[in-house]
Amino acid sequence: MPDSLTIADAANWYRASVPLIAGASASRPDYAEPFPYAWSLKSRLRLAGALALYDQEAVDEFLRAFPLPTQHEMLLAAFAASAEGGDFHGAALATLLTVCESERKAFPGTVGECIGLELWDGKKYWVMTEDGWAAKP
């Protein structure tokens, strides 16, 4: 729904949705090549995440955090990286369906929740990690 998510919620939704593209692509046997269909789905998911933001001024920031190269750019990069005779379409699809490290760390949570943040609860120190709050050693 438009204007219904914080940037952290939209980022979490997008990260959770990207891996589901593989199943959607597999269920469409009428597509000879799954990469263009999967790219189209990822493009639409990215746009839906951006349009769902409460703060429409954050759309550019959201789109920059989750870049999507063109199909042509992705296929060229996969071709250049593949061994001669390798399956570069499959490599491009695998890259497309992967949430990279910078995307995993984008918009980690609510305001104040950032990796490395320390908190004293009166008994011990806690630190925010990628997996949530942990007792500081």
Rank of each mutant, 00 (worst) to 15 (best):
residue 3 D to W: 11
residue 3 D to E: 14
residue 7 I to D: 02
residue 8 A to R: 11
residue 8 A to E: 12
residue 9 D to W: 00
residue 9 D to S: 07
residue 9 D to M: 04
residue 10 A to H: 02
residue 11 A to N: 00
residue 12 N to H: 05
residue 12 N to D: 06
residue 12 N to M: 03
residue 14 Y to H: 15
residue 16 A to N: 03
residue 16 A to D: 06
residue 17 S to N: 11
residue 17 S to G: 10
residue 19 P to T: 05
residue 20 L to C: 01
residue 21 I to Y: 08
residue 22 A to N: 06
residue 22 A to L: 10
residue 24 A to F: 08
residue 25 S to P: 07
residue 26 A to K: 12
residue 26 A to T: 06
residue 27 S to R: 15
residue 28 R to M: 15
residue 32 A to D: 09
residue 33 E to C: 06
residue 33 E to Y: 10
residue 33 E to S: 10
residue 36 P to I: 13
residue 36 P to H: 14
residue 38 A to M: 13
residue 39 W to H: 14
residue 39 W to V: 03
residue 40 S to E: 09
residue 41 L to Q: 15
residue 42 K to Q: 10
residue 44 R to W: 09
residue 44 R to N: 15
residue 48 A to D: 06
residue 49 G to S: 08
residue 51 L to V: 03
residue 51 L to K: 05
residue 51 L to A: 02
residue 52 A to R: 05
residue 55 D to Q: 05
residue 55 D to M: 00
residue 55 D to T: 01
residue 56 Q to E: 14
residue 56 Q to V: 07
residue 59 V to M: 15
residue 59 V to L: 07
residue 61 E to N: 15
residue 61 E to Y: 10
residue 62 F to D: 00
residue 63 L to E: 14
residue 63 L to A: 11
residue 64 R to A: 15
residue 65 A to W: 02
residue 66 F to K: 03
residue 67 P to T: 13
residue 71 Q to K: 15
residue 71 Q to A: 15
residue 72 H to E: 15
residue 74 M to L: 06
residue 76 L to E: 07
residue 76 L to R: 05
residue 76 L to H: 03
residue 77 A to C: 01
residue 78 A to S: 12
residue 78 A to L: 10
residue 79 F to T: 05
residue 80 A to I: 11
residue 82 S to R: 03
residue 83 A to V: 03
residue 84 E to A: 14
residue 89 H to T: 02
residue 90 G to Y: 00
residue 91 A to K: 00
residue 93 L to Y: 10
residue 95 T to V: 13
residue 95 T to F: 07
residue 96 L to K: 07
residue 96 L to F: 09
residue 96 L to R: 08
residue 97 L to F: 05
residue 97 L to W: 02
residue 98 T to R: 13
residue 98 T to Y: 09
residue 98 T to E: 13
residue 99 V to T: 13
residue 99 V to F: 12
residue 100 C to V: 04
residue 102 S to A: 13
residue 102 S to L: 07
residue 102 S to Q: 12
residue 103 E to M: 10
residue 108 P to R: 08
residue 108 P to N: 05
residue 109 G to S: 08
residue 110 T to W: 01
residue 110 T to V: 01
residue 111 V to T: 01
residue 112 G to R: 10
residue 112 G to C: 12
residue 113 E to Y: 13
residue 113 E to G: 00
residue 113 E to P: 04
residue 115 I to H: 06
residue 115 I to T: 07
residue 115 I to S: 03
residue 116 G to A: 04
residue 116 G to Y: 04
residue 118 E to A: 13
residue 118 E to K: 15
residue 119 L to N: 00
residue 120 W to G: 13
residue 120 W to I: 12
residue 122 G to H: 02
residue 122 G to P: 01
residue 124 K to L: 09
residue 125 Y to R: 11
residue 125 Y to M: 13
residue 127 V to A: 07
residue 130 E to I: 00
residue 131 D to E: 10
residue 134 A to I: 03
residue 134 A to W: 00
residue 135 A to E: 14
residue 135 A to R: 09
residue 136 K to L: 06
residue 137 P to Y: 09
